[in-house]
């Protein structure tokens, strides 16, 4: 049975909460929802932006009782440069697998002068789909399907930002 956890499920202002059967923590700030172009994601208070997962901020989900497989995850407001005078943004995703240990992956929104297509590169498995474009009016939303391939003994997953 696939369980879906959405950004709107995170209570603003907390930093440690069981949501959808996983233990979620944020550090060093607290959960903070942000809605852009109709997509609500959870970020973390403090840092460069007060409502996104910034460099040196970490959102982590841990399972103490069972390992799991990840059918998909979706990230928002991962832009690629000129919309907000920003860089090609990079998300780092780290998993801990019982059989394979710690594995680190990156999602980079690669700049496209003309969109569509709007593209991003993922160092893991599966496919990358753009759900909302990387434009000033868009949400720069990316869905990664089957991101870790057949790894099905994951016990934690952590999201943080890298320098773009």
């Amino acid at each position: 049975t696939v369980i879906t956890i959405n950004g709107i499920d995170f209570p603003n202002g907390l930093n440690n909460q069981t949501i959808g059967g996983l233990s979620w923590t944020s550090s060093p700030g607290n959960f903070q929802q942000k809605t852009v172009a109709g997509y609500t994601g959870v970020g973390i208070t403090g840092g460069r932006t007060g409502d996104e997962i910034d460099i040196e901020e970490f959102l982590t989900a841990t399972s103490a009782s069972f390992p799991f497989w990840v059918p998909s995850f979706t990230l928002g407001v991962l832009f690629d440069g000129p919309e907000f005078d920003d860089v090609q943004e990079v998300a780092q995703v780290t998993i801990v697998s019982l059989s394979q240990g710690t594995k680190v992956f990156k999602l980079t929104n690669t700049y496209d002068a003309i969109i569509p297509p709007d593209t991003a590169s993922w160092t893991g498995f599966g496919t990358v789909t753009n759900l909302s474009p990387s434009t000033g009016a868009g949400g720069a939303v990316w869905k990664i399907t089957n991101p870790f391939g057949s790894i099905n003994d994951i016990t934690s997953i952590e999201f943080t930002a890298l320098t773009g």
């Binding site: 369980i3 950004g7 997509y39 994601g41 460069r48 995850f73 990230l75 928002g76 930002a161």
Partner: peptide
């Protein structure tokens, strides 16, 4: 760089 988590799907493995 900065972003939000919009959704995570997982499936427990017995």
């Amino acid at each position: 760089s900065d972003f939000t988590l919009v959704q995570l799907q997982y499936e427990p493995v017995p």
